[in-house]
C-alpha cells in the first residue's frame, strides 16, 4: 500500500500491512511517475514519485521550478500574444510578460501575501513587484495585523504613558489612503483613540493585506503604502478606493461612498523596489 505522509519520501515507499495490524516498509519505493500525495500538497497540485520522493509538479511558463507540469494540463496563459508595454506599471489595455527576479518573500502575516521582484521581458526591461504564493511552512508562526501592531505598541507603552499597549490596523481616510499600512496604537483611557507610529517601524510588513472590506480588490502594504494589484498581480498605476469608514472629523462631510484615487508612477515604484532590495 501507499501512504499519504508529511514526509515526501514516506509517501513514495511501498508499505506492507502486517497480519497483526500496523504497517512496515522494507525501503522499496514506487517507480518514477507514480501519483503520490503529501500532507503539504495543496488541493489540485499534481505530485509524482521521482527517485523515491514525492515531488510537486507546478505550472510554470518560465521554467524556473525543478518539476514542471505539462503545459496541456495548465491554465492557458492569457498574456500570450499580447504586446509588450514600456512601463512597469500595468495598463488596462496592455499586459507585460514578467520574469521573476527574486524568491517569494513572505513576512508571515495573515491576511497577507508573498512579494517577489520581477523584470519585464523584451527590449525595454522594467522592474516591478508581483504577488506570489508564499511557502507558509517557512513561518514558525503566522501573526495577524493586530498581533503585529500590538507587539510594536507594547514596546512603545514602556516609554509613552498614554498608550494601552494594544495596536490595530485602521481604515483608510481621504487624507490618508495609506493609513491601513501604518501601525496605530490605542490610547490608554479612550479605546477609540489611536496614534500612528512614525517611520519605518510604523509600517506594516510588506505583503500585509490592506484591502479591508473592499474584497473585490487586491491591495497590500508595500513600504508603508497601500498598493492595489491588478490581474497580472503587479501594482496598478491608479487605484480607486471606496471608503467604508471615515475618521470621525470627516464623517459629517462625506457619505459612506466617498471615493479616492491614489496614483503610483514608475519613479515611485522604482524607489519602492530599491527599498525592498
Amino acid at each position: 500500500m501507499q501512504k499519504v505522509s508529511a514526509d515526501p519520501e514516506e509517501a513514495c515507499l511501498v508499505w506492507c500491512q502486517k497480519r497483526n495490524g500496523g504497517t512496515k516498509s522494507r525501503g522499496w519505493t514506487f517507480p518514477d511517475g507514480t501519483v503520490c500525495q503529501t500532507r503539504r500538497s495543496r488541493y489540485g497540485k499534481s505530485s509524482y514519485c521521482i527517485n523515491g520522493r514525492c515531488e510537486d509538479f507546478i505550472c510554470d511558463s518560465y521554467n524556473e521550478v525543478a518539476f514542471i507540469q505539462m503545459s496541456e494540463l495548465c491554465p492557458a496563459d492569457r498574456n500570450d500574444n499580447e504586446v509588450t508595454w514600456r512601463t512597469g506599471l500595468r495598463s488596462r489595455q496592455n499586459t507585460i510578460k514578467w520574469k521573476s527576479a527574486s524568491g517569494c518573500h513572505f513576512n508571515c502575516i495573515s491576511p497577507g501575501t508573498g512579494i517577489r521582484l520581477v523584470m519585464s521581458k523584451g527590449k525595454y526591461a522594467k522592474s516591478s513587484i508581483q504577488l506570489c504564493q508564499p511557502d507558509q511552512f517557512g513561518c514558525g508562526r503566522i501573526k495577524s495585523p493586530f498581533q503585529h501592531a500590538s507587539m510594536i505598541c507594547g514596546k512603545y507603552k514602556e516609554r509613552v504613558r498614554r498608550l494601552s499597549g494594544l495596536g490595530m490596523q485602521i481604515s483608510p481616510a481621504v487624507e490618508d489612503p495609506d493609513r491601513p499600512c501604518r501601525v496605530a496604537c490605542q490610547d490608554e483611557n479612550i479605546s477609540h483613540r489611536f496614534y500612528l507610529v512614525n517611520g519605518e517601524e510604523g509600517w506594516f510588513p510588506f505583503g500585509t493585506d490592506c484591502s479591508r472590506s473592499t474584497s473585490d480588490k487586491k491591495a497590500y502594504c508595500i513600504s508603508g503604502k497601500c498598493l492595489e494589484f491588478g490581474s497580472d498581480d503587479t501594482p496598478v498605476s491608479e487605484s480607486e478606493f471606496t471608503l467604508p469608514l471615515l475618521s470621525r472629523n470627516k464623517r459629517s462631510l462625506h457619505n459612506n461612498n466617498t471615493k479616492i484615487i491614489t496614483k503610483l508612477n514608475q519613479q515611485q515604484l522604482e524607489q519602492i523596489i530599491h527599498e525592498l532590495n
Binding site: Y156, V160, R162, L163, M168, I170, S171, A173, R179, A184, C185, D187, H192, R193, F194, Y195, L196, V197, N198, G199, G202, L245, S247, R248, N249
Partner: peptide, 11 residues
C-alpha cells in the same frame, strides 16, 4: 517615534 499630536478616532 509616535505621533501623539494627531490622534485618530475610529468607531
Amino acid at each position: 517615534d509616535i505621533d501623539l499630536n494627531n490622534p485618530i478616532h475610529v468607531d
